[in-house]
Simulated scan of single mutants.
Amino acid sequence: MVGAGPVRPPVATVRVDGTRQIPVRDVEAATGDQTGVPLAAVDTDGVAARVSAIPGVAAVEVDRSWPDTLVVVVTERTPAALLDTPDGPKLVDVTGFVYRDAPPDVRLPRLQLPRVAPDDPATLAAVGVLQALPVPVRDQVQTLSLGGGGSTFELGLTEGRRVLWGPWSDTDRTAARARVLGPVLQREGAVYDVSSPSLVTVRQR
């Protein structure tokens, strides 16, 4: 008599964790119909690849939770800025990746750079500047653009104020500039020059 083979419980549930902005139904659809497939036989790499293709997904882990649950853990991209395109404003994440349409109510600084991409040094410097700013200061930033023939950054703030950031390639000074900008914005002025953090200047126009 031939003995029975090992029991291979089928998938009964697909559990999605980690989503905030991405609809769970989009992740479930990307996993494919796994219901009834033996849990041990699920192609977890294939599921992860399909879910990773969803705009807004930064990373995916697919695990088996015995006896019958497939667990999909999603890490979403963190928006850092906006980029105006012919198709409308897009979100840019903290790595400089442009990934999906921006919701109409989102309020983020707009990058005004010749090129925005994860392999572009100016893009990486720009998102680094925005991430370094204290939240109350970042909330006042409307635009980040190039100045000085393309070698410096300029921040456009609310109420028409401007910040002269200095050379964008000088990333060693990013933290120091971000630190001094908050206090100096308490002073009345129109142009704030923090290119030299130890010698900040404020002009009225």
Rank of each mutant, 00 (worst) to 15 (best):
Ala132Val: 06
Phe153Ala: 07
Val129Arg: 01
Thr152Cys: 14
Leu130Lys: 07
Gln142Met: 09
Val135Gln: 11
Leu155Gln: 06
Gln142Asp: 10
Val129Glu: 09
Thr143Ile: 04
Arg138Tyr: 03
Gly147Ser: 15
Ser151Phe: 02
Leu146Asp: 11
Thr152Ser: 14
Thr143Trp: 08
Leu130Met: 01
Phe153Gly: 11
Asp139Ser: 06
Thr158Gly: 10
Gly148Pro: 10
Phe153Leu: 11
Leu144Trp: 07
Leu133Asn: 02
Leu133Arg: 04
Gly128Met: 06
Val137Cys: 02
Ser151Gln: 05
Val141Ile: 09
Thr143Val: 09
Glu154Trp: 00
Pro134Lys: 07
Thr152Leu: 14
Leu155Ile: 04
Leu133Pro: 07
Gly128Lys: 11
Leu146Ser: 14
Arg138Cys: 04
Leu144Lys: 08
Gln131Thr: 15
Leu157Arg: 05
Leu146Cys: 07
Arg138Asn: 01
Arg138Met: 07
Gln140Arg: 15
Pro136Ile: 05
Pro134Ala: 13
Pro136Cys: 10
Gly156Tyr: 13
Thr158Lys: 10
Gly150Arg: 12
Asp139Gly: 00
Asp139Tyr: 00
Leu133Phe: 04
Ala132Ile: 08
Gly150Ile: 12
Ser145Ala: 15
Val135Lys: 11
Leu133Trp: 00
Leu155Met: 13
Ala132Phe: 07
Val127Phe: 12
Gln140Glu: 15
Gln140Phe: 09
Leu157Ile: 03
Ser145Cys: 05
Ser151Trp: 02
Gly150Val: 10
Leu157Ala: 04
Glu154Arg: 11
Leu144Ile: 12
Leu157Lys: 03
Gly148Asn: 13
Val135Ser: 14
Asp139His: 01
Val129Ile: 13
Gly128Pro: 03
Val135Met: 13
Val135Asp: 14
Gly148Asp: 13
Val141Glu: 10
Val129Phe: 08
Gly156Leu: 10
Leu155His: 03
Val135Cys: 07
Leu157Phe: 00
Gly149Arg: 04
Gln131Phe: 12
Gln142Gly: 13
Leu144Cys: 09
Glu159Phe: 01
Thr152Ala: 15
Gln131Asp: 12
Thr143Leu: 08
Thr143Pro: 07
Pro136Met: 06
Gly148Ala: 11
Val129Ala: 04
Val137His: 02
Val127Trp: 09
Thr158Val: 15
Thr158Ser: 15
Pro136Tyr: 09
Ser145Gly: 14
Pro136Asp: 06
Gly147Ile: 00
Gly149Asp: 06
Gly156Met: 14
Leu157Ser: 07
Val127Tyr: 11
Gly147Phe: 06
Gly148Met: 12
Leu146Tyr: 05
Leu144Pro: 08
Gln142Ile: 02
Gly149Tyr: 00
Ser151Leu: 07
Ser145Asp: 12
